[in-house]
Write a protein that binds this DNA or RNA. Structure first.
Lengths: 288, 288
DNA sequence: GACGCATATTTGTCTGACTATATCAATCGG
DNA sequence: CCGATTGATATAGTCAGACAAATATGCGTC
């Protein structure tokens, strides 16, 4: 089916040539204000400052576009079932090539957020089909203030998994992981959660804990947990409600894990998370 | 520099029309040996028969390639840190265009499995960076027999989340969800797990249960749970070890949820999963 | 030895054309 | 009058070849 191309080659070539000529002719007088519209524009801001999640395709054009579209979809600009403008129009109006646009769409499609079919277009899928546990999607989610329900759901998940994970970690942690957690804990104690370094250490603590379960599937939830964790501190910071210092709780969890006491680890972690949830909910309800 | 497009728009459209006419004209006599070199070739087998997971980009070239590469990476053909041949060589040796190859790579990259940088190439990332909870990745995982540890991990996750989910579902399920679960249960009872329909109903049951928690994050784990579920039946089928009929367990869970008894739901579900894990482990250990 | 610079290699982007596919309408046969 | 077949059409998918940007590497200079 490719060989007919050879047949029609000559004829088509004539067209091509003609078209080229015409094209070039018009091109030759670009004249018009080549105003300094600068680079393509817009979305190049790309990964803003406060991304606590790994931003995969930082500076790349397709990555930035996927980011933007993703945020727009999650933010409700495009609703489920909506059909995006076709590739040609979209890429033209964004002033990027069709390839770059398509690669962006591929990224979104691979996260289950859109679905493309010939003659139909690219449609936003049902919300329950997106992989909201995907680190990138989670990151996009937090670009715009996520709904209260979503945050609660995240904490519920955390409340379910993290105590169990702590128990497993108590049984399976390696000495190396113990050291990493100890170090993270020390940083937290020194810097407090008010500093960026302290918050990073907090994340590192929970992250290492999840990996200490030596359970791949569970470890994959680390990002999700991390999102909830950093959301806690963000809320707390915002409302200056210090409530209760969570660091001693962390220390208790750590000690339990260090001495291999699974049930204590589970219990302490549960109390820690419950506290965090309480704090977050307290700051959440009055303002909504 | 894009504004010329607007100017040439009309002219181009004329060409397009004319071209189409010509095209159609030639099309009408396809004549020549449409020799059966067939499709491009090779990987088009694409999504084989036994995919119990939604296969996103079925017939598409980039999708098929992403699938293949994904399976190869998960199967250890490419190890973490390996660098794939450059885009030009790869696409040439696969006999596809660079665009298609790149789109496939974008898919993998968006799942955290590879990472591309200029002058370096595309390298396979560390295993703990892949999103193994991604439905597609999970599907690829099961193309080749996954490791015993992985299966165990999956069950551990199931053991942690599903009882809690059952408890939440008991409190929050809608009547519609009750009906769906009832129907699924009826099918299971009628067809047993030996039939495809029965297995589908099993999946539907667990799927609906997860969604009945009305927790987005938890619901996203439905695919993961589903993978573990269908893995159970696969093992059981393989070894003909009927052990114990799981359907009454399902019925108990359902009844608890129907009457809104959270703690009973949790308990029944835990016993159900524990049973499944036991069965699976029993069939697993002797053969490895 | 350290630093800056050129270079080569690889991904990233662009352009324009052609192919495949699926919806929709119209047509034809029953 | 209805159903199936066909054709038209719009859209994503694939292709080819070029150029741009980025960056690790090695060289040369200080």
């Amino acid at each position: 089916m490719r060989r007919k191309a050879q047949i029609t080659g000559l004829i088509k070539n004539n067209f091509v040539k003609y078209q080229r000529k015409c094209h070039a002719l018009i091109m030759r007088k670009p004249t018009l204000t080549d105003n300094k519209t600068q680079h393509p524009l817009t979305f190049t801001p790309a990964t803003g400052g406060h991304d606590m999640f790994r931003a995969a395709f930082q500076g790349r054009l397709h990555g930035a576009l996927a980011h933007n579209l993703g945020v727009q979809i999650l933010g409700g600009v495009y609703k489920s079932g909506d059909i995006l403008p076709n590739e040609i129009d979209s890429s033209e109006s964004l002033d990027i090539s069709r390839s770059a646009y398509r690669e962006a769409i591929r990224i979104l499609a691979s996260k289950g957020m859109v679905e493309s079919r010939p003659k139909i277009g690219t449609r936003v899928t049902e919300r329950d089909r997106w992989n909201i546990l995907d680190p990138e999607v989670l990151g996009w989610m937090f670009e715009t203030e996520p709904s209260e329900d979503f945050i609660k759901g995240l904490f519920e998940l955390r409340l379910i998994t993290e105590p169990a994970a702590a128990a497993l970690a108590a049984e399976r942690r390696t000495t190396d992981q113990i050291e990493r957690m100890r170090k993270a804990l020390e940083v937290m104690e020194a810097e407090t959660l008010a500093s960026e370094a302290g918050r990073m250490a907090d994340l590192e603590f929970h992250h290492t804990l999840m990996f200490a379960t030596h359970n791949e599937a569970l470890a994959s939830l680390s990002t999700t947990i991390g999102a909830a964790v950093s959301w806690t501190t963000r809320y707390k910071q915002r409302h200056q409600s210090l409530s209760r210092d969570p660091i001693p709780d962390h220390a208790r969890v750590f000690e339990a894990i260090e001495r291999g006491d699974a049930s204590a680890a589970r219990w302490c972690m549960e109390s820690l998370v419950r506290m965090a949830l309480e704090d977050t909910q307290k700051s959440m309800s009055p303002q909504t």
